[in-house]
Simulated scan of single mutants.
Amino acid sequence: MRETKDTKDIITMSERQVVKKIYANFENDGGAGNVIRQGITKTNHELLDPFVSLAELSFSPPGGFRDHPHRGFESVTYMLQGGLIHQDCNGHRGTIQEGDVQWTTAGRGLIHSEMPQEEANSLIQLWINLPSSQKMIWPKNREIPNSYIRRAWDNGVEVKIIAGESMGVKSPCYTETPIMFLDVTVDPSAQTNQTIPESWTAFAYVLEGDEGVFSSSDSSTVEAHNVVVFGRGDQVSVENTSSSRPLRFLLIAGEPIGEPVFQHGPFVMNSQADIDMTIDDYRNAKNGFEMAKSWRSQ
Rank of each mutant, 00 (worst) to 15 (best):
L80I: 01
G30K: 10
G109Y: 02
T12P: 02
F65C: 13
V184S: 07
G258T: 04
W138Y: 09
V236M: 13
V101M: 05
R2P: 08
Q235V: 14
F26H: 11
M1R: 15
I111M: 03
R93K: 14
H225S: 14
W200H: 14
E211L: 06
G39C: 10
P61R: 10
P131W: 03
F214T: 08
M269A: 06
F203E: 03
I149T: 11
G83T: 10
A292T: 05
F214M: 06
K140D: 09
E211F: 05
S147F: 08
T221W: 05
W103N: 02
G231T: 14
S215C: 14
R150A: 10
R71W: 03
D274L: 02
G209S: 04
E119V: 11
I137R: 09
P116F: 07
E114N: 05
S243N: 07
P266E: 03
W153M: 13
N129G: 14
T7E: 06
E158V: 06
N28M: 12
K293E: 00
M277C: 12
E208P: 00
H45G: 04
L207V: 11
F267M: 03
F267A: 00
Q298W: 10
N34S: 11
G31M: 03
E56S: 15
A202G: 12
V206M: 12
S199I: 09
V213L: 06
L182K: 01
S271P: 01
A273P: 01
N240T: 04
K286R: 13
M291N: 06
G212P: 14
R142A: 13
